[in-house]
Amino acid sequence: ENVVSAPMPGKVLRVLVRVGDRVRVGQGLLVLEAMKMENEIPSPRDGVVKRILVKEGEIDDTGQPLIELG
C-alpha cells in the first residue's frame, strides 16, 4: 500500500511528517479531527514520504488519499 487514505471524513489539523522523511510502521503521519476528536493516522508500513497530498486545515472525505509512501 503506497497511498495512505483517510479512514473517516474530517479536518486535517497537523501534518507530522515532511517529504523525504523515513517513517516506520505505526508512526503518526498526520492528525485528523473528526467528531470533535483528534485521531492520529499511522503509517501502514516502513517507507519514505514521497508526497503529501493534503494541507493543514483542509477537509477530507473517507478514502481520500492523504500521503504517498515510497
Rank of each mutant, 00 (worst) to 15 (best):
V25N: 07
V23Q: 01
P42E: 08
S5L: 15
N39D: 04
E58P: 11
G47P: 01
K50H: 10
A6I: 05
L13F: 03
R14C: 09
G26N: 06
V31R: 03
L30A: 04
V23G: 02
V23F: 03
Q27H: 04
R24E: 09
K11I: 10
G63M: 08
N39R: 14
K36P: 04
T62R: 12
K50T: 13
G57K: 04
Q64I: 10
M8K: 07
G26K: 04
R18A: 11
Q64L: 08
G63I: 05
A6S: 11
P42V: 14
D21E: 13
G47M: 04
V19F: 04
V23R: 02
V23M: 02
V25W: 09
R51Q: 10
K55Y: 13
I67Q: 01
G10Y: 07
E1R: 12
R24C: 12
V19K: 07
V17N: 00
V49R: 02
V12W: 01
V12E: 00
L29M: 06
V49Y: 00
R45K: 11
R51Y: 08
N39Y: 15
K50L: 14
S43F: 02
R14H: 05
K36H: 14
L66W: 06
E33V: 11
L30S: 00
D46P: 07
E56F: 09
G10R: 04
L30W: 03
V31L: 07
L66E: 01
K55T: 13
I59Q: 10
V48K: 05
P9S: 11
V4S: 03
D60V: 15
E1D: 13
L16R: 03
V31D: 00
D21L: 08
M37C: 11
L53F: 15
Q27V: 05
V23D: 01
L13K: 09
D46Y: 08
G20F: 05
V3S: 07
E58F: 12
V4I: 12
K55S: 12
G63P: 04
V23E: 02
D60W: 15
R24P: 02
V3G: 05
M8Q: 08
E40M: 14
R45H: 09
E1C: 15
L29W: 02
E1A: 13
L66Y: 04
R45F: 13
I41G: 02
L30F: 08
D60K: 15
G28H: 08
S43R: 02
M37Y: 08
V48N: 04
V15W: 11
L66V: 05
R22L: 12
E58I: 11
L16D: 00
K50N: 09
K36C: 15
G70C: 15
L13A: 05
V25P: 07
R14E: 03
V54H: 04
E1L: 13
L16F: 05
D61L: 13
E33I: 12
L53Y: 14
I41A: 01
V23P: 00
D21F: 09
L53H: 08
G20V: 02
V25L: 13
V4F: 04
D60H: 15
P44A: 04
E40Q: 10
V48W: 15
V12P: 00
E40V: 15
V3F: 14
R14D: 00
L69M: 06
R24Y: 13
G20C: 12
L69Y: 04
V54Y: 05
A34S: 13
